[in-house]
Amino acid sequence: MLLVKNLSFYRNQKIIFENIDLSLSPNKIIHLKGSNGVGKTTLLKILTKGLQPQKGEIFWQGKNIFKNSSDYFQNLTYIMDINTSKKEMTVIENINFWKKLFSSKINSKELDSVLKILSIEKYENSLVSTLSKGEFRKLELCRLVIEQKKLWLLDEPYSDIDNESIELLSETFKNHIKSNGMIIFSSHHNPELQNTEVIEIKKNYETL
């Protein structure tokens, strides 16, 4: 279970958000919504320890992630708003790198079917630099299946991908929460998902 208590973040004397509480248990999804600049990405970065909040605590399975993060990272997949695959490498080379990096147990048959479903199997041996923006994003989303972690944090996962892939991603979300997974994602898109709590972050105009 992921628990966020009283989280506040300030930058350049401006309050980005204040006193945010979240609670995410298995089989649940949190959808972060809000207009541009309200701090959705910032909140996700804090949840992955990329930023230190000024106030508040985050607990994973009862342990504070800022004091003990190894167990938390072992259960976490974070899909950023940028794509991490290397453009000078082929699609399959990037995938093999992720497999080794995260000691993934996914077999080649499962992997082939994922690539096929995402319609990028024909680009397996193509350089990532030759992919379109949408295909580039789909390759990044493959990490969800490769890493096989319990908690998924995703920043704008629906951006750049076509309608077919949007439905596919929503299906993947449903399957993940059926198998006791947990998801937090930020998006302006409104997918139809069960067990989803929508949290609207409001723009804060206050200064310190």
């Binding site: 992955t48 990272f73 940028i82 794509n83 991490t84 290397k86 990096l101």
Partner: peptide, 13 residues
Amino acid sequence: LNDGNIYLLHISG
């Protein structure tokens, strides 16, 4: 840093 790889490596442990 620009393509998020440093952070990805950090999350990998």
